[in-house]
Design a protein around this nucleic acid. Structure first.
Length: 499
DNA sequence: GACAATTTATA
DNA sequence: ATAAATTGT
């Protein structure tokens, strides 16, 4: 009996596993519910509903092939070892996972079991991420080659996507309209993105009120493997080629989307190549940039959306509630927590991972470190939350949706109510420090302190050699070919060009 | 023993 | 996919 082990949920490329296995004889499709995995501090347990929907969709697809999904609870090694005792596993097929330390170590135990019982374990590559990679040269070309490879035949995609369900693209507070699991849902979103919603993706992806509609919203399906990145890439390129050839908003939006599909793997590859980055600074010299322990009051205020910086608070409350936030706002909340509040990224990474419906370890830790300045090869991006507020949410709509206590504040003051004269605050009927918190620290002062800390740190350590190592192993080719990457202007990461 | 072909290991 | 390790000539 061959096992096809769906390690997360419907890993689309596991159809390759399924197809390969089925060609060799009888197959048992298996999903193991691992209690320990779901108890990890970065666990997606609160999004179990989404995962269950993905599993139901997978089960329906498999039943159509006459092989229902087996779902067994327990430790992966124990479950596999018992199945081996009962049925005799002739081969184990699964996807190649780039996950957190828990899944890495679990896979090592599974590997030991397979070696012991002489079970061949075939791990199929998911997307553009390569195992055993030592340096980034030619990575982009390889990504292109992998993405243009022909798709593996998929069983019919059924599941909750067939119902009349509509996603609330405004990311409102009604959870009846949360994102739903299953490939069919994902493809429905894909269709509406490439035909209607995505036209102004490029211009509006940074604005929290508009991004919910103009972004694809495919991230959860890609994270849980309900959709294949290769299929999304190929289909969106085909649509661009046939429908959006002339220069237009559509064309630049589609190009922008394509870049992000590429970055998806670019970031996961970092964790694959250097798994210690889940816990340690990628640039070893940057380890001491942040205190070992987070200031508990500041951390608590940030997590709860009670910092007194309206846009940050609105973002934190929104992501806690809906599981989604547009990329630019994620960058901002992390940058402000790290630079302005001096909170170590390890402490803010966990509550965010739990909140994100689309938590993908490789992207998450790459971004946490990038927005905290610990990669040593990216430009330091410090955001002023007040300035960002007036730029990205000029009418204050987003802030008012998630911080209703600020409803009466006019847009001129909405992002800095604490600066308004007392008489005005009285007129609005708001008592700061009571109805809404006073800021933990004024952004301007926090920015001054952060710049000072960084300057002092840089003066204290010689960071050049390690930066070269990180660049060689993790830098995109675009950057490696730029000679003055250390120069403050040339050192901007490619991400900066696209906002 | 030198070199080519093949297998293995690779977070 | 790739490089290192192993086997074959």
């Amino acid at each position: 009996m061959q096992l096809v082990w769906f390690k997360r949920d419907l890993r689309s490329e596991d159809h390759q596993a399924l197809a390969t296995a089925a060609a060799n004889g009888p197959v048992l499709p298996l999903y193991i519910v691992e209690p320990e995995l779901w108890q990890q501090p970065d666990s997606s347990a609160r999004h179990w509903g989404f995962v269950r929907e993905c599993l139901q969709a997978l089960d329906q697809s498999l039943r159509a092939l006459g092989q229902p999904l087996w779902v067994i609870q327990g430790d992966a090694v124990e479950v596999l070892s018992q199945l081996h005792q009962r049925f005799g596993i002739s081969a184990l097929h699964s996807h190649m996972e780039s996950g957190n330390r828990f899944t890495f170590e679990r896979d090592l135990r599974v590997l030991a079991l397979c070696k012991d019982k002489a079970i061949p374990w075939l791990e199929y590559r998911q997307h553009g991420v390569l195992r055993g990679l030592r340096q980034r040269e030619n990575w982009a070309e390889q990504w292109e080659r992998l993405m243009s490879k022909p798709l593996v035949h998929c069983p019919p995609l059924t599941g909750p996507g067939e119902g009349p369900f509509e996603l609330d693209f405004e990311c409102g507070t009604d959870l009846a309209h949360r994102q739903r699991g299953g490939a069919a849902q994902g493809w429905k979103l894909f269709d509406s993105f490439v035909s209607e919603r995505g036209e102004h993706y490029r211009q509006t992806m940074g604005q929290p009120m508009q991004a919910g509609r103009s972004c694809s919203r495919l991230s959860p399906y890609l994270a849980f493997g309900a959709m294949s990145l290769r299929e999304v890439t190929q289909r969106s390129r085909m649509i661009t080629k046939t429908q959006y050839t002339a220069p237009s908003a559509w064309k630049s939006s589609m190009r922008s989307f394509d870049k992000r599909l590429h970055w998806h793997c670019h970031f996961i590859q970092k964790l694959e190549s250097e798994p210690r980055m889940e816990f340690e600074a990628l640039h070893r010299g940057m380890q001491a940039l942040y205190p070992a322990e987070a200031d508990p009051l500041r951390l608590q205020a940030w997590v709860a959306g009670q910092t007194g910086w309206p846009l940050i608070d609105a973002c934190m409350r929104a992501v806690e509630h809906t599981g989604w936030l547009t990329f630019r706002m994620r960058a901002m909340v992390v940058s402000c927590a790290s630079y302005l509040l001096n909170l170590p990224w390890q402490s803010t990474a966990l509550p965010l991972a739990r909140a994100f419906l689309d938590y993908e370890p490789g992207i998450h830790y790459s971004q946490m470190q990038m927005q905290s300045g610990t990669t040593g090869i990216n430009a330091n991006r410090m955001y002023n939350p007040v300035k960002q507020g007036f730029e990205k949410d000029p009418a204050g709509e987003f802030v008012k949706r998630w911080c209703p206590e600020l409803e009466a504040v006019p847009k001129e003051w909405i992002h800095m109510p604490y600066k308004a004269p007392r008489s005005l605050q009285q007129k609005w009927g708001i008592k700061l420090g009571d109805d809404y918190p006073l800021p933990l620290i004024e952004p301007e002062q926090a920015l001054r302190e952060a710049r000072h800390r960084l300057k002092q740190y840089r003066a204290m350590y010689d960071l050049g050699e390690e930066a070269k190592r990180v660049l060689k192993m993790h830098g995109s080719q675009l950057r490696q070919n730029r000679p003055n990457y250390n120069d403050s202007k040339a050192g901007l990461d490619q991400l900066d060009f696209d906002f």
